[in-house]
Design a protein around this nucleic acid. Structure first.
Lengths: 345, 345
DNA sequence: TGGCGGCGTGTAATCGATTGCATAGCTCTA
DNA sequence: TAGAGCTATGCAATCGATTACACGCCGCCA
């Protein structure tokens, strides 16, 4: 089908350089084990033959694929695609390929992930989704399988896994405090998807800031969401039916916030005139929205890069960490136009 | 490092089922070549042992990786990540893995792509970027290497490659006509990145619609862009300095359009009061923007799916097309609030 | 009844790299 | 100068699946 002519193999290189294949292999992977002259002859032979190492053969022999698997909940969400960008770059630098699998829901997600490892297609897993069943994850990462795993963005409770994330709760509290400082007292929250760890952390930050300010939270101020714009749009209707409406909202992410504002516009509600809102993520469109969105900026690039770095370090056994690694990055509040002082009524 | 215990191999299955490995292999890959009884015994043995085929071993022997490589210009752009979603899904259904490589610019992009194939990591290439040097691409797809290639979204001139795309020029013309019908006569265009095929097609559609309506195009109405929001934002300043400003803009994509409108707001320009704009792509946020964006909706899901389908069909040799496949999908104009009739002055 | 054809299965070579073990040659020391 | 120790290299087994080829068996037909 594809390659019309067989690419040159290590045999061809060996013949050209008049050495054994073992020597070629060593010259390539462990240059220090080979004399200088031989090394030069081999490099020359590689150049002359146009040799490229056959990764399948190496994988078979070494039981490694030089590939990481990135499991995303929803690649369509810009937040993830930005992180994927950083992961891909870091991996490429370290010589690793990146396989992606998206929305790995379906009947048995962990089993599907497992197959990548049993079949020797990937060496490690970068998980961007905290909604996976924890028992299944432990199955994946413990004894017979032992998949090297780094969880990025979301922390899975219980200190079992390596994690790279941001200080969600603190950032959520900061966002909420900002609204409080502007004079708001009735502050609602658009939740993330239930069962997701991020949802819990952001809710918790919001709750603690409210409590610290001795403000009550009416149960109906917790608006159900799932990080998607459409859902944000839909709950606006629900929101308008509330009797004692909040004057400000902390949304679990930018997409909910934007959908919500768009939904509210149907009812003539304007932001920040009638309602203030803070988002989360600082997606690229946040500054260009009308009003420009006040939000929490997560260090996405660093998040992806550090997660990939950590995973590859683990794979290569360099600096084996004793216990699970936990890296927590700081996020930053970006003040823009979607929040305003509560007008006196 | 990872797998603590070796996963079961085909030998284990063979032993369990009391047959040879050859029979197990056949029972799995060519069930019709094996008697019914044996087939059942083998399935049972597979279940009992928890066998998963070692993909590296198969790849080595068969010279195929059951993996496609998706090369993206910029995964951060939502437009691509949405297509990637469809590609990933279709590939998963057909049993293929998806490797991604992003922003494969750098010194020698085609060479870097080539390595994936020489090293037997991927079987085919799905290219979402029309900006690659055509000579290099031909090198990749012709004789000794012969990488199976499908170009999605963007057509590379010269009828050499399989292509799945939308009717960019027609859609661009439609968008422009829409502005003309609203009474605009001074209509500008925000270009895509130079050297990109899409840029050319959309420009051409715009130009032809203008000509058909006997409208002139002042050279300074062609505003330089690159599909990015930031650049859209920046050119607003340049735009404000024009003496004979357009009253309407056709932007090469939604992101430019949104950045541009955001930039114009600094100068008190409101859309659609002071300017009308049509975007391209219908990104998820387009309906939620203020004003909701009039734009061209591309069938992204179909685009990704059909491209993946075509590539895998080629890889599997089913229905070998005689010449290059060209699939052109229709896009659709979505009228929203960012375009308005030119007010009489 | 002999021979032919087809089906189901097994044997063993093969894909291309890595690596444990053996060895040749050299240096250094007692 | 014998032997220890070290370096550079080669030989050949190995990873786990696929597949060309061979073979045995059965049924069918002449």
């Amino acid at each position: 089908m594809s390659l019309t002519k067989k690419p040159p193999t290590i045999q061809d290189v060996a013949r050209f350089a008049s050495v054994s294949t073992a020597t070629v292999s060593r010259a390539i992977s462990n240059p220090e084990k080979v004399s200088e002259g031989t090394r030069a002859r081999v490099s020359e032979a590689v150049r002359a033959t146009g040799y490229t190492l056959n990764q399948s053969a190496r994988s078979l022999r070494q039981r490694t694929a030089r590939t990481i698997l990135v499991a995303l909940p929803d690649i369509r969400n810009s937040f993830f695609s930005l992180i994927l960008d950083a992961i891909e770059r870091e991996s490429a630098v370290r010589g690793y390929g990146v396989l992606v699998t998206n929305r790995f829901s379906g009947p048995n997600p962990a089993r599907r992930l497992q197959e990548y490892f049993l079949s020797n297609r990937a060496d490690g897993l970068l998980l961007l989704d905290g909604s996976l069943d924890i028992e299944q994850l432990r199955l994946l990462t413990s004894e017979p399988i032992s998949v090297p795993l780094v969880v990025a963005c979301e922390e899975i409770p219980g200190d079992f896994f390596h994690t790279v994330k941001t200080d969600n709760a603190a950032a959520a509290a900061q966002a909420t405090r900002h609204l409080i400082e502007l004079g708001h007292t009735r502050i609602g929250h658009i939740l993330g998807p239930i069962g997701n760890v991020l949802t819990g952390e952001r809710l918790q930050g919001y709750t603690s800031a409210m409590h610290a300010a001795r403000l009550d939270i009416a149960p109906e101020w917790l608006l159900p969401g799932d990080f998607r714009m459409e859902t944000g749009y839909d709950i606006a209707t629900h929101f308008m039916e509330l009797q004692n409406r909040p004057t400000a909202i902390f949304a679990a992410n930018d997409e909910s916030a934007i959908g919500f504002l768009s939904g509210l516009r149907q009812y003539g509600m304007e932001c920040p005139r009638d309602i203030s809102i803070v988002g989360f993520d600082d997606l690229p469109f946040a500054p260009h929205f009308l009003p420009p969105l006040t939000t929490i900026r997560q260090p996405r690039e660093a998040l992806g890069r550090l997660a990939a770095e950590a995973l590859i370090d683990i794979l290569e056994g360099t600096g084996l960490p004793r216990g699970p690694v936990h890296i927590v990055l700081n996020s930053e509040m970006i003040l823009r136009g979607s929040t305003a002082r509560l007008p006196l009524r």
